[in-house]
Amino acid sequence: MTPRTMPRLAPRSVLLIVLGVLLVALVVGMEQLAPLFRAWFPDQNPAMYERESFLNLTLAHVALVLVSSLISVGVGVGAGLFVTRPAGREFAPLVSTLAAIGQTFPPAAVLAIVVPLAGFGFVPTLVALILYGLLPVVQNTVAGLGTVPPQTLEAARGNGMSAWQILWHIELPLAMRVIVAGVRVSVIINIGTATIGSTVGATTLGTPIIAGLVGNNLPYVIQGALLVGLLAIVTDLAFERLERRFSFGASGATP
């Protein structure tokens, strides 16, 4: 924390707080808006998704993304570290290519392909999310570690740091910004893919959307889409803040 930003909040932080509060309010109190939806869609009955509370849907969605992202980050950072150490360097080109080609696969198609292997429900969605979420994390871990200047590493070695100390005190902190950017991409994609996961039987915020699309019930669609859109935007803004924390006084944010 640099002292100069302490006194007033940046406009983006205000946005984050406002949207965050809005998200929580909608998750908890969507039912209060029932009269509004009834007035807006007088022909629709019911005009409010009631098969499951929005709180439960949101928690299930968040849990799915959280669990898959934690695993993705653990495995992805681990793989990124492995291919940048002397022992694993031989695997680096293959892993990078795999991450690049894998990301051209449509997330929805990956989700669909997992079904024959893992069945319907929570598990295939989780597996697809983990697999897909791995790729940006691996890619950015490798890229981030690659941005550490060779002179810095030489200086660290020359000052008597062990390989472990260099990794922990020099390489990881310097690569952290890029790694966090990768996690951000991964989590945002996963929030979206988890939504589609409701088509393979996972309970998420996509459930009311799909129910609405199938049953031609527009209010359901709007309620689900609003929450999941807001969830994604708030998460993205929070990650933007987190990224900035690892800039070490250097200027600006990435576009």
Binding site: T152, A155, G160, F248, A250
Partner: peptide, 21 residues
């Protein structure tokens, strides 16, 4: 061990060798 040796010997390179963080 090399790490212990290096801690007993000062080492300076161009300014880019400072730890930026």
């Amino acid at each position: 061990p090399p790490e212990l040796l290096r801690r007993r010997i000062g080492y300076a390179i161009q300014s880019t060798g400072l730890f930026p963080h």
